[in-house]
Design a protein around this nucleic acid. Structure first.
Length: 463
RNA sequence: GGUGCGGUGGCGGAGAGGCUACGCACCGGCCUGCAAAGCCGAGUACACCGGUUCGAAUCCGGUCCGCACCUCCA
């Protein structure tokens, strides 16, 4: 079985062929830690994590590196606004990010390099670019000369002239060409700065990923991941820098072999933005829904498709997962390790995932199996069930923590509910169904749903 | 203006020339004091207009609409 991935550079689905079978190397542009992570950040992390897990089914060693951007204009702004030191902001939000992602079942990257720990590597790379005549110094800035890289635009497919024509950005007068981008810029007094051959300054945005991917993985590596919005200019510039630092006009694949981009998350069909006030924070959603439900929701559509986020997706996912949880918990577990009978079913699932991570198709297969299990009494059904469990494992969905409800009910309300249920049970025993129904109605008004089972009456709070 | 992605049943969402996924909701039935849950069953679809073909949601041409990027942004 082979894995196929859509490569944004060639815009084709390509079979994944590792550069080194014994070590698969992946890099993903990680978060800028200046605020809470939103659902878009989460999609990127979850999808990349799924890619890693998928590769791990076929390859023993998968080295996944994802950076933390801890020096940036937005961070400086956030620090000034809150009047707190920069590292207090970045360490706080890095911690929150890591906790949130852990809740979503995202495995920790093998390495999580911080930009501020790699200033020297960035300076070295900038020096090599100057040496290779691809960068120039202008008014204490160091800029990359886009005209010196003949493949510039290969990823985003933009011609330079067209770009300039429609550009909304004002061209700084220290640039030779409008598209040239900053590698190093002087720091103002109140900004963080490092000594460099060009004076006290700080790095431009793009150079960090080039420097850290090279340092942590070596060049070239297998797959570079990120959100589609990063295609231009961030990834385009990374290619230009990384390749030009090797030697002028190095081919794009001297940097990395596959480009993996995930689609955007929107809210009510529009981009999440602070001005619209429609940013959905992972931290907030986690208060109401288990991380596995959020993760599952993110996987209900294909990773390259746009995803319009809504509470409906969460509700539906929750239902589906509770359905799976019930059937799994009511069945006897079997040892699933390398059982050929399981393999037979499980390969169907794997094939869907191996086909450019087609999670909706894979989920469809899981649901079909679910139907089979319901109808079948044969021993075959336990193999199918084991396949469902294995499938959910690949998806990184952990059912153990999912409860029918996550809503908090305080003790007073709880005892009140139990009292009412007792009253109702008494009424039912006395065949006073009218009274019983009135009590149920009252509970319903408190958002409490009840269910009479053989084991007695159970209740849950509706979200 | 340029670049890219997309428009599939009430909703979500795969598929990519004949096998018309899948889930949620809805409807009918079983079960139940009644509900709920569970089970059984039915229906509804490929933005529009042309063309190719025995056959198109899928290929070709055109039209309309939506979103994103081109500026920090996952």
């Amino acid at each position: 079985m082979q894995i196929f991935l859509f490569d944004s550079l060639s815009r084709k689905k390509r079979e994944f062929i590792p550069l080194d079978n014994d070590n698969i190397r992946i890099y993903a542009c990680g978060p800028t830690v200046y605020d809470y992570a939103h659902i878009g950040n989460a999609r990127m992390a979850v999808v990349t994590d799924l890619l890693v897990r998928t590769l791990q089914t076929l390859y023993k060693n998968v080295t996944f590196v994802s950076n933390i951007t801890d020096v940036d204009d937005k961070i400086i702004k956030a620090a000034n606004a809150s009047k707190k030191p920069i590292n207090e902001i970045t360490s706080k939000f890095q911690k929150i990010y890591e906790e949130d992602m852990e809740n979503l079942g995202v495995q920790k990257p093998y390495k999580q390099p911080k930009a501020t720990d790699h200033i020297n590597e960035m300076i070295e790379m900038i020096e090599s670019l100057i040496r290779n005549d691809c960068a120039y110094i202008s008014e204490k800035n160091v800029l990359f000369n886009v005209r010196k890289y003949k493949f510039y635009g290969c990823l985003s497919r933009r011609s330079k002239d067209e770009q300039i024509a429609g550009s909304r950005v004002e061209v700084a007068n220290y640039k030779k060409n409008a598209e040239d981008f900053i590698l190093w810029k002087p720091s103002k007094d109140n900004e963080p700065g490092w000594n460099s051959p060009w004076g006290k300054g700080r790095p431009g945005w793009h150079i960090e990923c080039s420097a850290m991917s090279k340092k942590c993985l070596g060049l070239p590596f297998d797959i570079h991941c990120g959100g589609v919005d990063l295609t231009f200019p961030h990834h385009e510039n990374e290619i230009a820098q990384s390749c030009s630092s090797i030697s002028p006009n190095s081919e794009p694949n001297s940097f990395c072999n596959y480009w993996f981009h995930n689609g955007f998350v929107t809210a009510s069909g529009e981009k999440m933005s602070k001005s619209l006030g429609n940013i959905k924070l992972v931290n907030e959603i986690l208060k109401k829904y288990d991380g596995s439900i959020i993760r599952f929701s993110l996987l209900t559509s294909h990773y390259r498709q746009p995803l319009d986020w809504s509470e409906d997706i969460l509700k539906q996912s929750k239902k589906t997962l509770i359905k799976f949880k019930r059937i799994i918990e009511s069945s006897e577990p079997i040892d699933s390790a390398n059982n050929p009978k399981i393999r037979k079913y499980f390969d169907d699932f794997l094939n869907a995932i191996y086909d450019d991570l087609n999670t909706p198709k894979a989920l469809g297969i899981l649901n079909k199996w679910f139907e089979v299990i319901k109808k079948s009494r044969s021993t075959e059904k336990q193999y199918i069930l084991a396949s469902i469990i294995k499938g959910l494992e690949i998806l990184g969905v952990n059912l153990t923590k999912i409860k029918p409800t996550l809503s908090q009910v305080d003790n007073t309300l709880q005892s009140r509910i139990l009292k009412m249920i007792n009253e109702r049970d008494e009424a039912r025993q006395n065949k006073d169904f009218k009274k019983a129904d009135i009590i149920r109605e009252k509970l319903k008004n408190l958002d409490i749903e009840i269910e009479d089972t053989v084991k007695g009456t159970i209740w849950r709070k509706n979200d």
